[in-house]
Structure formats: structure tokens, C-alpha cells
């Protein structure tokens, strides 16, 4: 029953991803490994599409992943799965919001959760980089051929541009797509 599986997988994602959209990435990679529903390259594409479409990043990725896995109903089931734990937890917390906010134990938990969240997002970034910046099928020992130099140059340029120009990420995504087409990145 693919829809039930999808629902449960995304419930788990919604329950354990703390810090918003990018924090769902490690769970998508785990799903990719354990279920084979989509590939690492699919996930990189999902991030790109989700960043350039309105709505929360995590919601968009869940919809996309669900569609890739189970068509339109899959997209709906995955998204509802992702939001269900949130709604339940917030409805409970809102009954004693003030207490929760100033609770020392909550604060201490976040002392551990924040670096964990950064680590998980950084590790997800490595997964994307392994697809975007490296030539597949080439051994690491042949470093010159292993690195996709075209991609590295583009990445450095975008990084510099984002530091200097306060443009919306969508614009950089569009530029990257154009560069990819002109210089035949694939």
C-alpha cells in the first residue's frame, strides 16, 4: 500500500525535522536509500523546483516527492502526512504557549538540537554537491577529471553574487539554469 507508506514516511519526517524546510532533506535522503522511490538526483531537482515555487520549501518537496512516487494522490498524501504531526503538536502547545517558550528544559534541548539541525542540513548539502560538482564514474584519485570544473566555477560565481547582490534565490536559480543550458552542463 504505497499511499499508507508515503503517509507514514512523511509523518515521520514532519515529526523529527526541526528547523523547517531544509531540515526535511536528511529524511528524503533516508527515504531514497531505504525505499528507492526516488534518486539523489531527483532530490536535488526537487529542491530546485521547490525553491523557485511559492509556498514553504518542505511542503513543496513533500508534494513533489509524493508525485514522483505515487502520482497526484501520492503528492497529496505526502503533504498531508508532513503537516499532520505539526498541527497536532501546535494545537497542544498553543494551550500553554508562554510556559513552553520560557521553559529551561526546552531551551536546553535546543542547545543540542540546533547544532544537530545544522549538521543534518550540511550533510544534505554534501549529497547535493556530490551530484552537482563531481563527475560521476570518475575515481577520486584522478582529481582533475573528478571535479566538474565548469560547475565549480558557476558555484563560486553564484556564491559571490549572492554575497554582493541582495537578489531573490529564484533569480540565481534562473541564471544557473541558463548557464547550464548554454554551457551544456549535463
Amino acid at each position: 500500500m504505497i499511499y499508507l507508506q508515503l503517509f507514514l514516511q512523511f509523518c515521520k519526517t514532519g515529526l523529527f525535522s526541526i528547523g523547517g524546510g531544509l531540515a526535511t532533506l536528511p529524511f528524503l535522503y533516508e527515504m531514497s536509500r531505504t525505499t528507492g522511490w526516488f534518486s539523489y538526483a531527483d532530490i536535488a531537482n526537487m529542491i530546485a523546483v521547490s525553491e523557485s515555487t511559492p509556498g514553504a520549501l518542505g511542503i513543496n518537496m513533500a508534494t513533489y516527492a509524493g508525485i514522483v512516487t505515487g502520482g497526484i494522490p501520492g503528492g497529496i498524501v505526502a503533504t498531508v502526512g508532513l503537516t499532520t504531526p505539526s498541527i497536532i503538536i501546535i494545537l497542544i502547545i498553543s494551550r500553554f504557549l508562554k510556559k513552553f517558550k520560557d521553559n529551561i528544559w526546552v531551551e536546553r534541548a535546543f542547545y543540542g538540537l540546533r547544532p544537530a539541525s545544522v549538521a543534518l542540513i550540511a550533510a544534505a548539502g554534501i549529497n547535493v554537491a556530490a551530484i552537482a560538482l563531481v563527475n560521476s564514474g570518475v575515481s577520486f584519485t584522478q582529481f582533475g577529471a573528478w571535479v566538474n570544473w565548469k560547475a565549480v566555477v558557476l558555484g563560486a560565481a553564484i556564491w559571490y553574487g549572492q554575497k554582493k547582490l541582495n537578489w531573490h534565490p529564484v533569480i540565481f536559480i534562473a541564471i544557473a539554469a541558463a548557464v547550464g543550458i548554454v554551457f551544456q552542463f549535463a
Binding site: 538526483a41 530546485a48 548539502g125 552537482a132 558555484g155 556564491w159 536559480i173 554551457f183
Partner: peptide
């Protein structure tokens, strides 16, 4: 053309994630 576009976009996604990590 779609493959090329996404290969370029994935590079941008790397940078977006890098920025999020340095910000956090």
C-alpha cells in the same frame, strides 16, 4: 535542454544550502 538546465540549477542549490548553513 531540461537536463542541462537542472545540472546548472543543482549547482545553485549547493550554494543556497551552503548559505543556509553559514547563516545558522
Amino acid at each position: 535542454v531540461v537536463k542541462n538546465a537542472f545540472a546548472g540549477i543543482r549547482v545553485c542549490v549547493c550554494v543556497l544550502i551552503l548559505n543556509a548553513v553559514t547563516r545558522l
